[in-house]
Simulated scan of single mutants.
Amino acid sequence: MNRTTALATGSALAAGPALGLPAQPQVPGREASGAAPAPVVRDLRDRAGHSPHGLLFGPRDLVVVTGLPGSGKSTLMKRAVTGTRIDSQDTRDRWDARVPRALPYALYRPLVRLAHYTGLRRALRSGEGVVVHDCGTQAWVRAWLAREARRRGGTLHMVLLDVTVDTALEGQRERGRGVSRYAFRRHRRAASHLLRAAEKGRLPKGCGSTVLLDRAAADTLRRIGFTG
């Protein structure tokens, strides 16, 4: 795949018609004509930090940030997202603060997940742009977000963090919380599949664009937001 070398004239990368990234609004009759825009991949890796400082999307778009556990998704979202962000880690932290420390997470994990998806559904109903933490293994979540984006006249976009396994494991150690070997293998397979497909220009169904980030590009980002 040919990597894009010039994405913006300033410090921000706009994900929308201005720079050729498809907004893909829900247009009557589009299904009949088969005129859906082709997905777009923007590769910001291997730039030694000389990459855009911002990612801007349409006002009704949805964005999923995905990558290995420990790759820096939550850190990036906390630092850069200027609008509504829905991060399952935030939900878990709130529950961890409530329940007794002796109670294993596995026992209240279903309640955390229920609270997370309830919060996500509420955010989607607002009609505004939302950035969502995506673990990569839940394809049904991306399908749900793609349907919601189409319904509101926007587009689903994916921001994919590409870091090494060692970097991800170190990230887990730094935050003092990891996943089991079995779960990590599942995440690794899912992330590898998404990355290989994106590098070949194949994106998840309903996804209009993907931005590929390595650690340097992610550290350079200061804003993930929405126009309008």
Rank of each mutant, 00 (worst) to 15 (best):
G67S: 10
A115L: 12
R142T: 08
H133F: 05
R202D: 06
A18P: 03
S192G: 11
K205T: 06
A14M: 04
A32C: 06
V159F: 03
G129Q: 04
P52E: 11
R202N: 09
T9Q: 02
L21Q: 00
R3D: 02
A197H: 13
R189E: 09
P39T: 11
P52G: 01
Q89P: 06
Y105H: 13
R223K: 14
I224W: 11
D219W: 05
V64M: 08
S71K: 08
H116C: 06
R189C: 11
R47Q: 09
H193V: 05
G72H: 00
T5L: 08
P204Q: 01
A35D: 11
A183W: 01
Y105A: 15
P110C: 12
V163T: 13
D162S: 03
R42K: 13
G208C: 01
T9P: 01
Y182P: 07
V130Y: 06
A149R: 09
K73S: 07
R85N: 03
A146M: 00
V65Q: 07
E31K: 12
H50K: 04
G178A: 14
R152V: 09
L145V: 02
A48L: 05
L203H: 05
A149G: 05
P22I: 11
V112Y: 15
G176S: 12
Y108Q: 14
V27D: 01
R188F: 13
R42L: 14
R152S: 08
D93L: 14
Q89L: 10
L111F: 14
V41M: 00
R151F: 12
R222L: 01
R173G: 03
L195R: 14
A123I: 07
R150W: 12
D166G: 04
Q24P: 05
H50R: 14
A143S: 07
V141L: 02
P25S: 09
L161E: 15
G171R: 14
P52S: 10
G176W: 05
D61W: 03
K200C: 05
A36N: 06
P37L: 15
R147S: 02
E148W: 00
G72C: 04
T220F: 07
L213V: 08
T84V: 13
R60M: 01
V99D: 11
P37F: 08
Q24L: 15
A6H: 09
G58L: 03
T66L: 10
R150N: 01
N2W: 02
G153D: 03
R150Q: 15
F184Q: 02
V41F: 06
A23Y: 02
A38Y: 02
T227K: 13
G154N: 02
I224D: 08
L44Y: 14
V130F: 08
S71I: 02
G16A: 07
A15C: 11
D90Y: 04
G178P: 10
P28M: 08
F184M: 02
A36W: 12
R215K: 11
D93I: 13
R188K: 14
